[in-house]
Simulated scan of single mutants.
Amino acid sequence: MTQPPVRSALLALACCVGLAAPAAAHPHVFVSARAEILYAPDGAVRALKHIWSFDEAYSAYITQGLDKNGDGKLTPDELAELAKVNVESLPDVGFFTTAKANGKAQEFGQPADAGLVFENKILTLTYTLPLKTPAHANRSFGIEIGDPSYFVAFDIVDAPDAVITRDAPKGCIVRVARPPKLDPAVQQKLAQEDITATPDTSGLQVTTRALVACP
């Protein structure tokens, strides 16, 4: 069976460190996420900054064998190749992100400033995702973060800084709309899927939306 793009990208990360992919329930990776919407001095949206923290089990799995000097710590240098593979895989899955300026879909450029940090058993990826063309969103700028196939479960953190703006025009307000909790019966059905299956998530809202409204 041909692997869907989301699955292929994450399996590529496993191959990078010489591991076989784990057979796990669906979803297979859990991410606690934050996002920053970055503005240029002229008031245009120029980029997004993603901060994604992987669950403890996946963090341990994907970093096996990367402690090259055996000191029990993972440095940014030891994680550099894994960060590179992460970012190179993301265009295949649309960066798990969509963006619209005044209702018009935006294209992304090449990601930059990618880095991984391993702290308190959690692996965190940070990178900047520029818009291909800076967007003058004089009415609204919206983003949607998540994996519609639910192979990766994104949880936008429940905190005031979950989605914020940087250098936005005065008076802009961010509103975050999280998906509703899945029905227990649906969760049980998804948990029965193995790594070779793609569950039917049509009709389910599993992504988080954020809208910046400016005066």
Score class of each variant (00 low, 15 high):
Q3L: 10
Q3E: 14
P4L: 07
S8G: 05
A12H: 01
C15Y: 14
A24R: 04
H28V: 02
F30K: 01
R34A: 09
I37S: 06
A44I: 05
V45R: 01
R46N: 10
H50N: 06
H50W: 07
F54M: 08
F54S: 06
S59C: 03
S59H: 02
A60E: 09
A60K: 07
T63H: 02
N69Q: 07
G70M: 03
D71I: 06
L74G: 10
T75N: 11
T75S: 15
T75L: 07
V87T: 12
L90H: 08
T97S: 15
T98G: 13
T98C: 04
A101S: 14
K104M: 13
Q110T: 15
Q110C: 00
A112Y: 04
D113T: 08
D113E: 15
F118S: 13
N120Q: 15
I122A: 09
T128E: 10
L129S: 13
T133G: 07
A135E: 03
H136R: 11
A137G: 10
A137F: 07
R139W: 09
S140E: 14
F141H: 03
E144D: 12
S149R: 01
Y150A: 04
F151G: 01
D161K: 10
A162H: 07
I164N: 02
A168R: 03
K170Q: 12
G171I: 12
I173R: 14
V174E: 00
K181L: 15
P184L: 08
A185K: 13
K189G: 05
L190A: 02
E193A: 10
T198S: 14
D200E: 06
L204H: 10
L204F: 02
Q205N: 15
V206K: 09
A210Q: 08
L211A: 13
L211P: 00
L211E: 15
C214G: 14
P215E: 11
P215K: 11
